[in-house]
Design a protein around this nucleic acid. Structure first.
Lengths: 190, 190
DNA sequence: GTCTATATGCGGATAGAC
DNA sequence: GTCTATCCGCATATAGAC
């Protein structure tokens, strides 16, 4: 297999693992096993675990913004806000993607990772304000809802959807009209 | 010094350190140094690092709910929503408290920590719905705003408040009328 | 391009003294 | 109640073969 293909394969595997265990909690050995390669090879390609995580964050952001731009371009009858909102919830089907970002967001203290995470977050904000045409308050509300969704995904709240009425109520309020997608996650092994 | 005093001292120190470096990224040695005791002593008192983190989470939640109840009881002219909201932002002055919770929220995958974190989050939701009298949608909006604030704190966005106009705009939208408090954090060493 | 073998450092936990 | 000394396992990274 060519280098670039392996690289992308490892990035996908790493996104899942980092999402599950966080930056520090993830070992390059587990990433390697998930990608079907040897541990030293992961290090060989990305240099360090830190660099691998940074590339995971950058890739996640690229995918996120690409999905937003696609949703923005697809003009059905809906206004821009709901269209992008639905696109965001759709991304929850790649759990690791949102969770890896979230793990980055709580590491602002780290000089290297923190800088990347801040930059990524602000890129999204800038997209909302300029490309999507949100005003400051709309952007804030959109991001707020997004952070709640991320938190609920991080908490694995979907596990308790059936058994806990509070969970059901909260998720119905937090996920306007896209609940089914998130619930589908449970089926596919969460 | 008596055992219980030392215990609380260590919990305070641990709250700060866990907030900065997360659960896995925190070492008992750093907690010990921050509390001014020896590393084995920390383990001795709490049994394991995991148990220590769980007690940090529980304590953080207790403080959070106590602050909310106090704000609810203090009847100035304001309605309940803004009163509790201000109480929440006030808690940001204890950065580690909100951040430790946030680090717990992204570890839902962990069988032990995840269960504690879910339970804690739902306790807050239940408080909002029953004691504070929020309806489902109000509770969702309150929690959304809270998660955005936590994320901005985790990202250390306050560092860029002066230099980046996007940060200023976003924080002004996210922090209705309590911006000054959060900014005061920067002074005190963030 | 990909592996095996391994050096090295660090962190949680234990033993046991005072 | 609190410490010092230390064991043991694990994770990143390197060396080097194929």
């Amino acid at each position: 297999m060519k280098g670039d293909d392996r690289r992308e394969l490892i990035l996908e595997a790493a996104t899942e693992v980092f999402g599950d265990y966080g930056y520090v909690g993830t070992t390059t050995a587990v990433v390697a096993k998930a990608a079907g390669v040897s541990q030293p090879y992961v290090v060989r390609i990305f240099g360090t675990k830190q660099q691998l995580f940074i590339e995971v964050l950058r890739r996640a952001l690229d995918i996120l913004l690409a999905a937003f731009r696609a949703a923005l371009a697809t003009d059905n009858g809906q206004p821009a806000g709901p269209r992008i909102g639905v696109a965001y919830v759709d991304l929850a089907s790649q759990r690791g993607l949102l969770l890896s970002l979230m793990h980055g967001f709580v590491l602002g203290k780290d000089p290297v990772i923190g800088a990347v995470a801040r930059d990524g977050f602000l890129c999204v904000y800038e997209f909302l304000r300029t490309e999507a045409g949100f005003d400051a308050d709309e952007a804030q509300q959109f991001l707020s809802g997004g952070m709640l969704i991320n938190t609920l995904v991080g908490l694995r709240m979907t596990d308790d959807y059936d058994t806990d009425p509070r969970v059901r109520e909260l998720m119905q309020a937090a996920l306007p009209e896209k609940l089914d997608i998130v619930l589908a996650l449970r089926e596919s092994g969460l």
